[in-house]
Design a protein around this nucleic acid. Sequence first.
DNA 1: GTACATATACCGTCCAAACGGTACAGTAAA
DNA 2: TTTACTGTACCGTTTGGACGGTATATGTAC
Lengths: 190, 190
Amino acid sequence: MVEVTRTDRRTSNSRQDILEAAQRLASREGAGKLTIEAVAREAGLSKGGVLYNFPSKDLLLKGMLDWMIETIAPLIDEHRDALEGQPNRTLRALIKASDFKAKNIDPSVPMAILAVAAEDPELLAPMRAEMQARWQQVLDDGTDPELAALLWAAADGLMFHCMLGTGVFPEERRTHLLGRLDELATQICK
Amino acid sequence: MVEVTRTDRRTSNSRQDILEAAQRLASREGAGKLTIEAVAREAGLSKGGVLYNFPSKDLLLKGMLDWMIETIAPLIDEHRDALEGQPNRTLRALIKASDFKAKNIDPSVPMAILAVAAEDPELLAPMRAEMQARWQQVLDDGTDPELAALLWAAADGLMFHCMLGTGVFPEERRTHLLGRLDELATQICK
DNA sequence: GTACATATACCGTCCAAACGGTACAGTAAA
DNA sequence: TTTACTGTACCGTTTGGACGGTATATGTAC
């Protein structure tokens, strides 16, 4: 009797659909155009339907950010596990994980960051926490903290430029650039 | 005769005031809170006054972006000129110019990027053009294009994290990190 | 200098549309 | 019947923007 409802929620995955629709919309039209009605239209249901799953816009945005974290974190861990024993495994995992195309992840996923930042910058707190924890892992790998921070920043810079379409390199070559970044990360020594 | 008393109004450039108020607001409250009324309040005039100077919100945002470019471009050129004859002068100038604190430039200036992206990503076109032109200069300096792109991305990654407050390094050390980045840029060889 | 005309820079008010959110009736399945 | 959800109708507020008015500066003619 206790655990029944779980399966019901799984049968219809409206929550996922809504979150994905929101990402797509933010990525295509801009974070400012992300209204509840527009999300509903994009997800193929009514405004009431969206508000049933996410009782307020803030909760929808929080949901977007949480989902982004939950999507990316295991991806990072996976790469990190595969690099066990090798130097700078966490940093290298962060770099590898930011190549979304390689893992068939919607490239608009990290747009949640900009959408959330536009609505209320304080909602980014969970992401800050996640990044700090990850940074501790990077440090624990024993490396030059400054170089590591710079390489991480490079990966994120590429990601932001990819999101905004302001990159100076053609999009197709981002994977290759990340490969180069990975080489650098491998070579860092304390 | 006395022609100066009210001349303050004429002399004081409201356009600048409005643009600066908009940057401050976007930086403090988030890009989504950037409404014409709020900008007017922050700039100390009425909504009508803002709309007189910028006939539509899109034009205001375009104004913010243009002003950002006009503020930063000469700064880059200045650094670039100072590095004449040295390797990778353009890339190094880009890195140095992204340290706003050093030049007493309001750190909220690049928030225009996020504000514009939130309203309509296509408005970023002028920035894309500016960056492509700058990239050509970097290439003309004769360097490893991929490494150069990565170092530039690192500088921008630090900037974005600074804007969003999601950086993993304390803000005070950004200057130092940029110095380290400058060292790397100096060492790149073809 | 006075009178009048025009331009500039801005204010205050108003409005239709869009917004986030509520209320509730309905449905389909378990 | 309960649970999980959809869809419509609606409300109060906010939004971008239009518009007419106003104080001041400037130009021109007397």
